[in-house]
Computed example of a mutant assay.
Amino acid sequence: MYGHVGAAAVARQVERDNLNELIRVAEVEHRPVAEGEIAALREQLQRARWAQTGGGVDDA
């Protein structure tokens, strides 16, 4: 009855594991990204979304 729920959870975990591996490889090849850089990019993205929507409601 709940097999599809378990399969979805496994699929999400595999996706997380794959993303973590990609991040690890990218950090080895380049460098780790600092939390401050992430915050600055997040703010930049939010400003860009605000500008595109004319300051409307954020759908994200």
Rank of each mutant, 00 (worst) to 15 (best):
E35A: 10
G54E: 02
G36L: 02
V10D: 10
L19G: 00
G54Y: 03
R16H: 14
N20F: 02
A7T: 08
E43A: 15
D17F: 11
R24C: 09
E35R: 13
L22F: 09
H30P: 00
Q13W: 10
E37L: 02
T53Y: 00
H4F: 13
P32R: 12
G36N: 06
Q44H: 10
V57F: 12
E37G: 01
E21K: 09
G55Q: 04
D59E: 15
H30A: 05
L41G: 03
V14K: 10
A60E: 15
A48I: 01
G3I: 11
R24L: 11
V14E: 06
I23M: 13
A34Q: 06
A11T: 03
D58M: 12
R24Q: 13
E27N: 08
E21A: 13
R24N: 14
R16M: 13
P32Q: 09
A7I: 03
A9S: 14
D58Y: 08
A48P: 00
R16V: 06
V14Y: 07
V25Q: 15
E29Y: 02
G3D: 15
I23D: 09
V25L: 15
Y2N: 12
Q44Y: 05
V14L: 12
A26H: 06
R49L: 12
A40W: 06
E37T: 01
A48K: 04
L19F: 05
R42I: 01
N18Y: 08
V33L: 07
V14G: 01
A7Q: 11
G54C: 04
E29P: 00
A11F: 06
Q13R: 11
T53D: 00
V10C: 09
V28C: 06
V28M: 12
A7G: 08
N20G: 07
D59K: 15
E43F: 08
A39C: 06
N18P: 00
L41Y: 08
A51V: 01
A40T: 03
R42T: 04
A60Q: 15
G36D: 05
R12E: 11
W50Y: 03
E21G: 04
G6E: 13
E43W: 08
G54S: 04
E15F: 08
I38S: 01
Y2F: 11
D59H: 15
E21Q: 10
V14C: 05
L41H: 12
V14P: 00
E15V: 04
P32N: 05
V14H: 06
A9Y: 10
L19S: 02
A34Y: 05
V5T: 06
E43H: 10
Q13E: 08
E35L: 07
V28P: 00
H30Q: 09
V57H: 11
A51T: 02
W50M: 01
L41D: 07
Q44W: 03
V33W: 06
A34G: 02
R47F: 01
E43K: 13
R16E: 08
A26Q: 07
G54I: 01
G6W: 14
Q52P: 00
A60N: 15
A7S: 09
L45G: 00
D58K: 08
V33I: 14
R16N: 10
E43R: 15
G54R: 02
H4Q: 13
V25S: 10
E15L: 13
I38K: 10
E15G: 04
A39E: 13
V10Q: 12
H30S: 07
A11P: 00
R47D: 04
A40S: 07
R16S: 10
E35M: 05
N20C: 03
G36C: 02
V14F: 09
M1P: 05
Q46H: 07
